[in-house]
Amino acid sequence: MKPNEIFKELKVHFGEEITELVENPSSDTYISVKPEKIDEICRFLRDNDAFKFDFLTLLSGLDLKEKLGIVYHLYSMELKHRLVLKTEVPKDSPNLPSLVRVWRTADWHEREAFDMFGINFQGHHNLIRILCPYDWEGYPLRKDYKEPEEYHGNRVPY
């Protein structure tokens, strides 16, 4: 199924939640959605027989200057098609529903996005840092991140 067909189908079911279909000749096509009901949209995509997106390939966080973005790459084992969903949350309250109950692989991916960008996935059972130490401060992949001078007595800059 092509992304534009999926977009039409999603628009019928979720209406305003689905913002736009972004097509660009030199890059992947993606569907922009609102963050509030992302879990319902994803569950619909997983369970509907026309899509069968049973595989979350990648969940990535983005820093979009004013906002934080979350990108979901989906894949269907059976129908062999891919889909990209993109959503944005404001930087001062980066909250959106967690997808752990839809795909279990979202667990570590969401923890990583939390670790690197400070995105708060509501409903995640164990949202703690994963790559950085548990007592690390700041969100390293944000564009305005400044590396610490010292960590546990070790100088960090070269």
Binding site: L131, P140, Y145, E147, R155, V156, Y158
Partner: peptide
């Protein structure tokens, strides 16, 4: 020895084990 290729932006890399 010195952090190697990660010396510049490696916020989480110890730049040389001789520091510890």
């Amino acid at each position: 020895n010195s952090g190697g290729p990660y010396w510049e932006h490696g916020y989480h890399v110890l730049k040389g084990v001789d520091r510890i």
